[in-house]
Simulated assay, not measured.
Amino acid sequence: MIGLLAAAALATAQPAPESQPLTIGETVTLEALGEEHGVNIVLPIGYADEPDRRWPVVYLLDGGVTQDLFMGAGLQRWNTIWGRSADAIVVGIETKNRQRELLPPTSDPAERERWPTAGESAAVRVWIAETVKPLIEARYRHDGTAVLVGESAAGHFVVETWAQKPQMFTGYAAISPSLQWDFEALSRTPLGEGKRPPLYISLADEGGATETGMMRLLDALPEAQPFCFSDRRTELRHATALHGLLPEALQYLLPTGVDYLDEYGFTLRCDRRGGPR
C-alpha cells in the first residue's frame, strides 16, 4: 500500500507536458466592396518538404474560419488519404454578406425586398480574378490547376463564373446552386459557343424553381461540354448537400487515376454526364 501511495505521489509531482501551437494554415486580409475579407490558405502536408513539387488549388467560397474552411480542408485531406482526389492547396475565401457578394442583381421584387443589398457578384468576380488569384499564384507553388467550389448562393456564383468567365478556373463545382434567383435567369441565358472547363453540379431536395432552373441549364449544355450532374433529390437535403458531395466533386475535378475507388465505395456518380474530360 505504501508503495502504491508513493508511486501516485510521484506521478502527481511530474510537470504537465507543454502544449504546442497547432497550425493548419495561413491567412491574408484583403479588402473587397469596402469590407475586409480573410483569405485562408491551408497547404498540403509535406508542402515544405517537397520544394520542387507543385500543387492544384481549390478555391472554396464561404471559406472563412467561421464558415466552411475547416470542413472543406478536412474533406479534401480525407479524400487525399484514400486517393480519391489529388492533394491540393485549399484557399478559403471569406464572405461577409453572401447575397451581396455572390449573387447578381435581381428583377424579382420579393428578392429585392428581402435582400436589398444583393447584386454585386460581378465586382467580387473581378476582385478574385485581379487580386486573390494573382496573390495565391505568386506566393504558392501551384501547377496551373485551379478549381472553384461553392454551395447554394456560392453555387450560383460558380455557375455564373463558369458561364461568363470560364477561363478564370480550370474546373468548377456548384453544389445545390440557387438557380431560382431572378426568375431562374442564369439558366435562361444562352451559353454561346466554345467548350468550357469541366463542371460538377448537383441537386438535393430544393424542388421548385431551383429544380426547374437546374433542368433547363442541363438541357442547354452543349453535347461536347464535360460535366457531371449528381442527382440527389431523394437522398440529400439542402443543408446536407455540401459535406455530402464535396468529396465527389473533388474526385471529379481532381482525379487521381487509381483503379480501386469502386472497391471502397467511391464510385463517381454522374446521373447525367457530358463530353470527354
Rank of each mutant, 00 (worst) to 15 (best):
M1T: 14
A8F: 10
A9D: 14
A11R: 11
Q14I: 12
P17D: 04
L22E: 12
I24H: 11
T27N: 11
V28Y: 12
T29M: 10
E31K: 13
A32D: 02
H37A: 10
G38A: 09
I41F: 01
L43E: 05
G46A: 07
Y47S: 04
P51K: 04
P51N: 07
D52F: 12
R54P: 00
W55A: 05
V58I: 12
Y59H: 10
L60H: 11
L60V: 11
L61I: 09
V65C: 09
Q67N: 05
M71P: 04
A73D: 06
Q76A: 14
R77F: 08
R77V: 04
R84T: 15
D87M: 10
I89C: 06
G92D: 00
E94I: 08
E101R: 05
L103M: 13
P105D: 09
D108T: 15
P109Q: 08
A110G: 11
A118V: 02
A118S: 13
P134W: 03
Y140K: 08
H142M: 12
D143M: 04
V149Y: 00
G150S: 01
A153G: 09
A153I: 06
G155M: 07
F157V: 07
F157R: 08
A163P: 06
Q164L: 14
F169Q: 08
Y172S: 00
S178V: 01
Q180H: 14
W181L: 09
E184C: 09
S187G: 01
S187C: 06
R188K: 15
T189M: 10
G192E: 00
G192N: 00
E193C: 08
G194L: 03
K195H: 12
P198N: 04
L199W: 00
Y200L: 03
Y200E: 10
I201M: 03
S202L: 07
A204M: 04
D205T: 08
D205H: 07
G207H: 03
G208K: 14
G213S: 09
M215G: 06
P222W: 07
P226K: 07
F227K: 02
F227C: 03
S230E: 11
D231Y: 02
R233Y: 12
T234M: 14
T234W: 12
T234N: 14
T234V: 11
G244W: 07
L250K: 00
P255H: 09
G265C: 00
G265V: 04
L268V: 02
L268C: 01
L268K: 01
R273W: 14
G275C: 08
P276C: 07
R277Y: 13
R277W: 13
